[in-house]
Simulated scan of single mutants.
Amino acid sequence: MKQLKERKSFPFMQLLPLGAILGPIIFTLTWFILGFISTGYTIYNVRIEPYSVITQPISGLGMGSTALFMNSSFILSGILLLIGIIGIFHSLRGIGQTLMRRLCMILFILSPIGLVICGIFNLEATFMHSIGFLLSTGTTILSFLTAGLYLRQIPGWKTLGKGLLIGSPLTLILFILFFLNFDPIASGEGRGIAGIYSRLLAIEVLIWFVIMGWLSFKRAHHTRS
Rank of each mutant, 00 (worst) to 15 (best):
L134C: 07
G64M: 07
M70Y: 13
M70T: 04
L103R: 11
L115W: 14
S136D: 10
L82A: 15
A202Y: 10
F10C: 10
E49S: 14
P112A: 10
G190M: 05
I75Y: 09
A147R: 08
I203S: 12
L172R: 05
S91A: 07
T39K: 00
L34G: 02
K162I: 15
I43S: 07
L16F: 02
L80A: 03
I25A: 14
F121K: 11
S38N: 07
I193G: 08
L80W: 06
G190R: 03
A186C: 01
A147I: 07
G167R: 10
L135E: 00
I83C: 09
K158S: 14
I176E: 06
I43H: 08
S72A: 04
A20I: 03
Y150C: 00
L164D: 03
K158R: 15
F178P: 07
F178V: 08
R219P: 04
G167Q: 02
I117R: 00
I141V: 13
R102P: 06
I37V: 14
Q56E: 10
I154Y: 02
S38P: 12
K158M: 14
K2F: 00
S187P: 09
F12N: 01
F10L: 14
T28D: 09
T139F: 15
P155L: 15
G78C: 04
L107W: 12
G195S: 02
I85D: 00
M13C: 08
L134S: 09
L80R: 07
F178M: 00
I54A: 07
K158A: 14
M63C: 06
L76Q: 09
T146K: 12
L92H: 03
T140Y: 09
I131H: 06
F108S: 10
I166Q: 01
G188C: 04
F175G: 08
S52A: 06
S72H: 05
S216K: 05
I95D: 08
I203L: 10
K218Y: 15
L145R: 09
T55C: 11
I120W: 13
L201C: 01
I43M: 13
F36E: 00
L76A: 12
S187N: 00
T39V: 11
I88E: 05
L99K: 15
M128S: 12
L103I: 14
G156C: 07
I203D: 09
L115H: 12
H90N: 13
M63Q: 09
T137Q: 12
L160S: 02
R102S: 12
G87N: 04
I95T: 11
L180G: 07
M100W: 12
F10G: 09
L172G: 14
I75N: 11
S198Y: 05
T28F: 11
G84V: 00
L160R: 13
Y150D: 02
L123Q: 08
W208T: 02
S198G: 13
Y197I: 04
I33N: 06
I79Y: 05
E124Q: 06
I141C: 06
I185H: 06
R102T: 13
G148K: 04
G132N: 03
T171F: 08
I154N: 03
F12A: 13
L61S: 02
Y150V: 02
V46K: 06
K158Y: 12
P57G: 06
L110S: 00
G62P: 07
Y197N: 01
F144S: 06
F74Q: 08
S73Y: 04
F179Y: 03
T126E: 14
Y197P: 08
S9Q: 15
M70R: 11
M212I: 01
E124A: 10
Q56N: 15
K218S: 14
E124N: 02
I166E: 04
I106V: 11
